[in-house]
Amino acid sequence: MLDLVTVTLASLFAGFIDAIVGGGGLILVPALFSVYPSAAPATLLGTNKGAGVWGTGWATAQFAKRVQLQWSALLPAAGAALIGGLGGAWTVTLVSAEGLRKALPLILIGVLAYTLARKDMGRTHAPLHSGRTQALVASGIGLVIGFYDGFFGPGTGSFFVFLFVRLLGYDFLNASASAKLLNTATNLAALALFAIKGHVWWHIALTMAVANVIGSLLGTRLALKHGAGFVRGVFIAVVSALILKTGWDAFLK
Score class of each variant (00 low, 15 high):
residue 98 E to A: 14
residue 84 G to Q: 09
residue 191 L to T: 06
residue 220 T to G: 04
residue 113 A to P: 07
residue 21 V to Q: 03
residue 175 A to V: 11
residue 37 P to N: 09
residue 96 S to D: 14
residue 141 I to D: 07
residue 139 S to L: 10
residue 4 L to T: 12
residue 65 K to F: 09
residue 188 L to M: 09
residue 133 T to F: 05
residue 105 P to D: 01
residue 138 A to G: 12
residue 183 N to Y: 01
residue 28 L to K: 01
residue 51 A to V: 12
residue 83 I to S: 09
residue 186 T to S: 12
residue 25 G to Y: 00
residue 170 Y to R: 11
residue 150 G to F: 05
residue 134 Q to G: 08
residue 1 M to H: 03
residue 28 L to D: 00
residue 18 D to T: 10
residue 49 K to L: 10
residue 25 G to V: 03
residue 25 G to T: 06
residue 3 D to Q: 15
residue 44 L to P: 06
residue 166 R to M: 10
residue 242 L to Y: 06
residue 189 A to I: 13
residue 241 A to E: 04
residue 129 H to V: 10
residue 136 L to T: 15
residue 161 V to A: 09
residue 244 L to F: 12
residue 131 G to V: 06
residue 248 W to Y: 15
residue 161 V to H: 01
residue 124 T to A: 14
residue 112 L to T: 05
residue 166 R to E: 13
residue 239 V to E: 09
residue 227 G to Q: 14
residue 195 A to H: 04
residue 225 K to A: 14
residue 220 T to F: 01
residue 222 L to F: 10
residue 7 V to D: 05
residue 186 T to N: 06
residue 174 N to Y: 07
residue 45 L to M: 13
residue 45 L to G: 01
residue 175 A to Y: 04
residue 4 L to R: 12
residue 250 A to P: 07
residue 18 D to A: 06
residue 129 H to D: 11
residue 225 K to M: 11
residue 70 Q to H: 15
residue 48 N to D: 08
residue 32 L to R: 04
residue 210 V to Q: 11
residue 223 A to V: 08
residue 223 A to R: 00
residue 233 G to W: 11
residue 72 S to V: 05
residue 215 G to R: 02
residue 234 V to S: 06
residue 72 S to K: 15
residue 253 K to C: 10
residue 85 G to K: 04
residue 224 L to V: 01
residue 136 L to A: 15
residue 199 H to F: 07
residue 228 A to Q: 09
residue 242 L to D: 04
residue 58 W to L: 13
residue 153 G to Q: 02
residue 149 D to F: 07
residue 191 L to D: 01
residue 109 I to D: 08
residue 7 V to M: 04
residue 117 A to L: 12
residue 101 R to G: 03
residue 234 V to T: 00
residue 188 L to T: 14
residue 174 N to M: 14
residue 247 G to D: 10
residue 18 D to W: 07
residue 56 T to C: 05
residue 15 G to P: 01
residue 79 G to C: 13
residue 120 D to C: 02
residue 195 A to E: 08
residue 140 G to I: 13
residue 9 L to V: 12
residue 128 L to P: 02
residue 160 F to V: 02
residue 230 F to Q: 09
residue 154 P to Q: 04
residue 104 L to F: 01
residue 99 G to V: 03
residue 82 L to K: 05
residue 201 W to Q: 10
residue 78 A to N: 04
